[in-house]
């Protein structure tokens, strides 16, 4: 599974780690994140992310 990077702040979403603070279980692919998921660091939407 690919990592994705926030183009605004540089946060990297790692599917292996997920985003447990925001209810995303480890092992969740970027594509499977809810559409309203936002960057936990800066609040950018999914469309601001690119493959790292």
């Amino acid at each position: 599974m690919e990592k994705y990077e926030c183009t605004l702040c540089g946060y990297v979403y790692d599917p292996e780690a997920g985003d447990p603070d925001n209810g995303v279980a480890p092992g969740t692919a970027f594509a499977d994140l809810p559409e309203d998921w936002v960057c936990p660091l800066c609040g950018a939407g999914k469309d601001a992310f690119e493959v790292a």
Binding site: L8, L41, C42
Partner: peptide, 9 residues
């Protein structure tokens, strides 16, 4: 009002 990345998180 939070304004993240205008211009830091």
């Amino acid at each position: 009002v939070a304004t993240p990345m205008v211009h830091w998180p």
